[in-house]
Design a protein around this nucleic acid. Sequence first.
RNA 1: GCACCCGUAGCUCAGUUGGAUAGAGCGUCUGACUUCGAAUCAGAAGGCCGAAAGUUCGAGUCUUUCCGGGUGCACCA
Length: 691
Amino acid sequence: MTEGIKRIVSLVELQENLRERVRAEALELFGISLEQISAEIPPRTELGDLAFPVAFELAKRIKQTTGEKRAPRAIAEQLKTALESTAGVARVEVAGAGYLNVFYDRAGFLARFPSEISEQTSQPETLSDAKGKRMVEHTSINPNKAAHIGHVRNAVLGDTFVRILRAAGERVEVQNYIDNTGVQVADVVVGFMHIEHMTLEDVKALNSSLPPQKPFDYFCWDLYTRVGLFYRDGDPNREENQEKKQLRAEILHAIEEGDNATALLADYVATRNVECILDTMERLGIRYDVLPRESEILHLHFWDHAFAQMKERGLIHYVSEGKNRGCWVMPFESHTGTDEHEADKILVRSNGTVTYTGKDIAYQLWKLGLLGLDFNYKLFREYADGYQTWITSSRPQDEAIERPHFGGGQTVYNVIDSRQSYPQEIVKKGVAAIAPEKGEEASVHLSYEMVALSPAACEELGIRLSEEDRARPFIEMSGRKGLGVKADDLINRLETDALVEVEARHPESSEDEKLATAHAIAVGALRYFLLKFTRNSVIAFDFKEALSFEGETGPYCQYSAVRANSIFRKLDEAALKEAEHLISGDEESGNKSELLKIFEGESGDEIWSLVMLAARLEEIIKQSVAAAEPAHLAKYSFNLARAFNLFYHRHRIIAEGNRIRRAVLIKVADITRRQLTLALNTLGIGVPERM
RNA sequence: GCACCCGUAGCUCAGUUGGAUAGAGCGUCUGACUUCGAAUCAGAAGGCCGAAAGUUCGAGUCUUUCCGGGUGCACCA
């Protein structure tokens, strides 16, 4: 073994070294330069830890350049020796039609794997400012009602992606956009003013009189659906009453105007809903750095700045005739126009007001530090542990205390459902046109499919379905119709169910402990449930599945870690130290040969496969970032938990008679529980002491 | 009409930049608690990866055309 090996702990690093080696050898031996070298994880442990199918590619390239026909196996044989001399590699085999299968130095790898999770990687001080900040906007629920399960998918997806980015060493700013001046808020204000006939004081009084089971956002949830009916004079199938719809327009106008009783009422309603929504999200471990509001985007005239830039660059033009007469539009080439659908996107209406897309372009420019304007900010809330959430303000006098710098990110990730991919495309294209140096890569639409309700779930909610709906695979949720599963209701139910299980298993625990454990399980179940599906898969929400604690679930993963921890509760410090010493490989004793023996054969493969899986976390995090897909990490966590459960059943770790073997089992279990805990924490799932 | 997404086991879904014998969970059936915790584990059954052609050493994965389902394509947000 070479000296350099002592340094190497990371699989990713080892893999890179091997790739480089292959690249160098291909050039040296065959004069072929390979731009991309694909590596693969062999299907079974006995086939090695990493495989290069590179000989097939080389055989083809050799034939192309020299006309000489070479067998892939022979080529693989030539590369074999070079790979074998790489640090960390025990041996290399040529298998199948020409696969190069690399076997790592098992005992050496195990000995060098850190026994404490290295905390440094996620510490902010090691993150360089030069690298640029990642901006993630998620949640962004209309502040006019309680959050439902669809909103939670957005928030959990966004929050988990934030955690993944941070685990990968990125600096991240989390934003939750508040559309406090839109029609949805206006609708609820219509309800308060014209159905309930309430003033701001009445609404405040109502708020403080509401029972904890039905807080303000729940009240608004119901009121919002009543407004929908109100517009149709009480009959959902009737046409909308234009006189009543006019009330909305008036309120919308008053809100935009500001400085009037209606605007104050709207602001109170929106703010109370934001508070409720933030409370809901806090239950799931989700927080935000800053809450940018639409009211400030309006009042601080963000659009005017963007508008000027667009005019300057000739990206937008005034239409003087035709259907879009009087509008300012942005041409959108990739979309050919038809009679019905215009190719041009209207950004300023003929009445002079700006569209949502226009505002969004301005906002996106701000996120990237390209607007040349900033918000004012004030502290919105401070959590018990000191974490602060800020909200935008249009009053410079609010800028009293020291605050972090917001905005100006290098890359922006917008977590928005896939139904908005068209407008997101326009925003991306528009921003890239204004700032070509940033390009389209700076704006990422982290899209995901909606959460719908299974017909069974609708039935459980007591929703009557039409014949036509019943035949559908799923039913779309609708805040307008009040059709949906409220987030807090679901969390409550999960906590109740979890508490029953905890009570049954740990009656001796304190009430607080039981509640905390039930909470952790509920969060684990919900977050995992929403993360196990890939982003572009529609979730047809099903109560039975979402409420399950068995099988491929968060609690399954947590349970695996809890069991691993219980082993270490029973082991004393000395036993751990001894284990570490026995496998360290430092001493010149006979341990080495015995260690090698433990990793031999079928049993050795079985133990080793768990080590390899556990060590892969870093790589999985990288893949999850590259694909912007948290589901990869979720699946990995489950597989690691599953592998540990298998290991746990196969070995009696504490009772193991052979001390070297016992030391190996202890170290493997320790590595696994640490990596599993880290993976789960990155998913926002905690591991309770007992469960 | 145009654009995007999906189609893999009875059901719900994974399947890394194309790689070796296509995997989980649920459900069904059969077993395993005197052990570091059974929210667990083992075993069985279950597949023309929507269809057809093409690209290549190699296709669930890439291309094209169909078929079936979903979602967009506002002077709404």
